[in-house]
Nucleic acid binder design. Structure first.
Length: 649
RNA sequence: GCCGGAGUAGCUCAGGGGUAGAGCAAUUCACUCGUAAUGAAUAGGUCAGGGGUUCGAAUCCCCUCUCCGGCUCCA
């Protein structure tokens, strides 16, 4: 008997039945065999030592493959568990999967891990790796497995939760489970694994934290240890370097550094104050928001921060959202008020302010509405998760006939918004969330809405995935996710249908046939929250905003005090073109003044000295360029700065 | 909210029962300089806040607040 294996290059090679992956790799080349960590047969990953008994597509997996990295990190997680169980005999272990860039493992322990514990555990891991213990695949029956792991309640729960006949994530399905053994350590696992622990080239533990068993806050709190593993020390170092670089663009660091905003303790958690430069940035973003809303046919409305509690009762927020709302205050004759966490009810009241006809629709109401939400203390995160923030919110009311066109209209708006701020189409993807289990509205409405949302995405050529059951209880939605400069994905815009509010408030319009009809309601945010959006922008651009958004666009640096007069004249020339310009009047050296402007990431630095005064020129340096141009005629310099400083069309 | 770590000058940090420290920033003075840090001097602190232990607390203990990393949450 023989098996025929088709290699990635298309060639087909015959091997004896039961040949191992390693033997096949060896037959291809010794270096490949050395690099091999697993093989893939017909899409299924197998250990190198597994006998191959069927023909098909065959590929050797090395650490260069994504699957190889996955295996490396999975095996690293095993070694972590082995180290912890060795160092902490009373510890029990739960699950430890590979994740993006690394792995973690959750443990039940009598006390949380300290940083010193992590050092000790990591040292133990390195010893296990040095010992080069082979990973051995063990096949157990359910009963055998229950016996082997009898002392580990989480493992027992995993084994018992395996539905016979169906594959679960931790183990192969059926009456049989697999485990991997190295030395005296054994862990439940479907594999595959590296051939031995010595094949882990570079591993490092990063941090520990609490984590709930099965992700459920009502269940045990376990201690999770995060680590990272790479094919080489160099790649590990590069990864750590990337983390440092990401830290440098953290908006919570750049905000104060660039004098944009801060979070004074005296104000309260999750509440920002905006400094003049951040205020300018914010004004520019908000101006852009208003201009685009106007372009897309929205009308501006304003609603108060405080509204009667009864209104929130009508809208259902007190039923569904109360724990995120600030507590009520009682005024006048025991009337209760609450701070708004959303803008919708206010906009609905405006809709209701008079009888609406089909001729009024679509009615598009927008507001830069500041809302306050009580976020749990542990989740506040700079501008990205604040307790007070301003939504670029809008609510559109339309007829069923208009719904398709209107959704597409709104989607187009969201996309233009992202493009305006420098996010490329290729970095935008969408998610269509459909009806969840608990929902309001009629099936007919959901079906229409979900279909029209999908059609709008198709019409705009947006790549999207469907998230079944992930919609809000009140309607399906599209979320727009955007990738930033270092590849992180952020949810920004959203287009959501709402079947709930029109019903709760009894919204109507008069149809052409003179009968009352219920309008459809669309929530749409482009940035989401202005604060969060600026936080993301700050990280995306690492604080070096495109010139049109830079709070200060031009810094004029006089070489000596005698050039101050000309410097002011130069500044005036830039300002006359609408540029935001500052003159550095300090008595520092030229080098220092330039350094400060660069550190503050100003797009243009203009240096003026004796020759410039005489020739009416300037020295021009653009941010990010490590050189400068001398003797640029003033008018040219203004033109050069004005171009990129103009708002995008 | 939960688990851990942390809070000392505007910023970055040292000090860990016995008089509060450095660098950068700030201010002043001198320098007036041609593309990423001129020099000197000065000033700056309820050591997050409150309580306790102690002859004596930034330091040890308790509570609160805030921040950081996760978990959970983000109808």
């Amino acid at each position: 008997m023989a098996v025929v294996l088709r290699y990635p290059d298309g060639s087909e090679v015959e091997h004896p039945d039961g040949v191992t992956g390693l033997e096949v790799a060896r037959s291809i080349g010794p270096r490949l065999a050395e690099a091999a960590v697993a093989v893939k047969l017909n899409g299924q990953l197998l250990d190198l030592s597994r006998p191959i008994t069927e023909s098909g597509d065959f590929q050797v997996i090395t650490l260069k493959d994504p699957e190889g990295l996955h295996i490396l990190r999975h095996s690293s997680a095993h070694v972590l568990a082995q180290a912890v169980l060795t160092e902490f005999p009373d510890a029990t272990f739960a699950i430890g999967p590979p994740i993006q860039d690394g792995f973690y493992y959750d443990f039940g322990v009598s006390r949380p891990f300290s940083p010193e514990d992590l050092e000790r555990i990591e040292a133990r891991m390195h010893r296990i790796i040095a010992e080069d213990q082979p990973f051995e695949r063990v096949v157990l029956t359910r009963d055998e497995a229950l016996e082997v792991f009898a002392d580990h309640k989480y493992k027992v729960e995993i084994i018992e939760s395996v539905d016979p006949g169906e594959a679960a994530s931790e183990v192969e399905g059926g009456e049989i489970v697999t485990a991997y053994r190295n030395l005296d350590f054994i862990d439940l696992c479907r594999g595959p694994h590296l051939p031995s622990t010595g094949r882990i080239p570079a591993v490092k533990l990063l941090r520990s934290s609490g984590a709930y068993w099965r992700g459920d806050e009502k269940r045990d709190q376990l201690q999770r240890i995060y680590g990272t593993a790479w094919p080489s020390q160099k790649e590990l170092d590069e990864y750590l370097h990337r983390l440092e670089e990401a830290e440098k663009r953290d908006h919570r660091r750049l905000g104060p550094e660039l004098d944009l905003f801060s979070f004074p303790n005296a104000v309260g958690s999750g509440l920002a104050v905006w400094h003049p430069k951040g205020g300018m940035l914010r004004k520019l973003v908000e101006d852009r928001s208003r201009a685009l809303h106007e372009k897309y046919g929205f009308e501006f409305v304003f609603t108060p921060h405080l509204m009667k509690a009864d209104l929130w009762r009508t809208s259902g927020h007190l039923d569904y959202y109360a724990e995120n709302m600030y507590p009520r205050m009682v005024m006048d004759n025991d009337v209760e008020y609450q701070v708004k966490p959303m803008n919708c009810p206010g906009h609905i009241l405006i809709y209701q302010s008079r009888t609406r006809s089909y001729r009024d629709l679509p009615l598009r109401l927008s507001e830069l509405g500041t809302v306050y939400r009580y976020e749990k203390s542990g989740v506040v995160h700079g501008l990205l998760r604040a307790r007070g923030f301003t939504q670029d919110d809008s609510h559109t009311f339309c007829t069923e006939e208009q719904l398709g066109d209107e959704l597409r209209h709104q989607l187009r708006f969201v996309l233009e918004w992202q493009r305006t701020f420098g996010f490329q189409a290729a970095d935008i993807r969408a998610e269509l969330s459909t009806r969840p289990e608990k929902s309001v509205g009629e099936t007919h409405q959901w079906e229409i809405a979900e279909r029209l949302l999908a059609e709008a995405l198709d019409a705009e050529g947006i790549e999207y995935t469907v998230a079944p059951g992930e919609g809000a209880f009140y309607g399906p939605k599209i979320d727009i996710h955007v990738k930033d400069a270092i590849g992180r994905s952020w949810q920004m815009g959203t287009v959501q249908l709402d079947f709930n509010n029109p019903q709760r408030f009894g919204l109507e319009y008069v149809s052409p046939g003179n009968v009352p009809m219920r309008p459809y309601m669309i929530h749409c945010a482009k940035a989401g929250s202005i604060e969060r959006f600026i936080g993301i922008l700050t990280e995306h651009y690492a604080g070096a905003f495109p010139a049109w958004l830079a709070p200060v666009q031009v810094t004029v640096v006089p070489v000596a005090d005698r050039h101050l007069e000309y410097a002011d004249e130069v500044a005036a020339a830039f300002a006359a073109e609408g540029l935001r310009v500052e003159v550095d009047r300090s008595s520092e050296t030229v080098g220092d003044k330039i350094r400060r402007a660069i550190t503050q990431k100003h797009p243009f630095v203009v240096v003026v000295g004796d020759r410039d005064v005489e020739d009416r020129t300037v020295g021009l340096r653009r941010y990010g360029e490590d050189r400068d141009t001398r003797g640029v005629p003033l008018a040219d310099a203004v033109a050069q700065a004005a171009g990129p400083s103009r708002e995008p069309a």
